[in-house]
């Protein structure tokens, strides 16, 4: 569904390359996590996919077509919820629909249905400042879903949350995904989160990024946190942490 072919990229203000001849693929309906240390270029991969940056060479394909010929095929959810403070939760969710010129009545219907889906029906007319961190993140996720894209790019969506909310939202995200089976690319630096959520973990090692090491996660769905205690999962977790340079200073 998504394919990077020999992509090379460097930010104009940097004197080093972010990625060089990078190739990888993501299949339709897969949940794939990308992990790596902070500042390793994980988010840059997203910026290339959603067109905020252009590769110097190489190409990115979506459904076999170069992405330069497509427009908003992916839905991007950044680390911060970025809910617009002057819009109510309902109005925030309507943003991608407004920009897509969806008729008003249909907007309202879709927003209501989505609010129900993410359990925020009672908050349609509240402002973001009245919501807790977890609720804001759910609202931001709902807004991302309303773009209607089949490819979701989630950039460390839970990293700013406290650990209990984080666990609850991971479980919730997994349920949502098991229901809709969109293709999800999930950037994180949390190894456990990556293992729990994904079918496949891609690890970023070096800079420039020349390849992504792939680790399949053989856990069945639906999953629960107990699965993480399996010895092979524990082993994988330790291995990944070690390979990412963890455990040493």
């Amino acid at each position: 569904m998504l394919e990077f072919q020999n992509v090379t990229f460097q930010y104009a203000e940097d004197d080093y390359q972010m990625m060089k001849d990078l190739s990888f693929q993501v299949e339709e309906g897969a949940f794939v996590s990308i992990i790596g240390a902070s500042g390793c270029g994980k988010s840059t991969i997203f910026r290339l996919i959603n067109g905020l940056e252009q590769p110097q060479s190489g190409q990115i394909f979506y459904d076999g077509k170069p992405i330069s010929s497509l427009s908003h095929f992916s839905a991007y959810m950044p680390q911060k919820d970025l809910l617009f403070p002057w819009r109510t939760v309902g109005q925030n969710l309507a943003l991608p629909l407004e920009i897509g010129r969806v008729p008003k009545a249909e907007q309202q219907q879709k927003v209501r249905a989505m609010l129900k889906e993410v359990g925020l029906s009672d908050y349609e007319n509240r402002y973001p400042k009245e919501l807790s961190g977890g609720m804001r993140q759910r609202a931001a996720f709902a807004r991302t879903l309303l773009t209607g894209s089949r490819l979701l790019l989630l950039d460390e969506p839970f990293s700013a949350l406290d650990s209990l909310t984080k666990i609850a939202l991971q479980q919730w995200l997994l349920q949502e995904w098991e229901k809709y089976r969109q293709t999800v690319l999930f950037v994180t630096h949390d190894v456990e989160e990556a293992i729990f959520l994904s079918d496949r973990v891609l690890v970023v090692y070096d800079r420039p990024i020349t390849h992504l090491e792939a680790y399949p996660i053989p856990l069945p769905h639906p999953r629960n946190r107990e699965d993480l205690k399996r010895p092979d999962m524990q082993e994988l977790k330790e291995k990944l942490i070690k390979e990412l340079g963890g455990g040493s200073l």
Partner: peptide
């Protein structure tokens, strides 16, 4: 205006007009 918000709207396919009315003005 926050650049991240501008970029988010851009990924939704926002035009310059959308950016002005939905983000910059508020």
């Amino acid at each position: 205006t926050k650049r991240e918000m501008e970029e988010l709207l851009t990924t939704y396919g926002a035009s310059k007009r959308d950016l002005f009315w939905k983000l910059k003005l508020p």
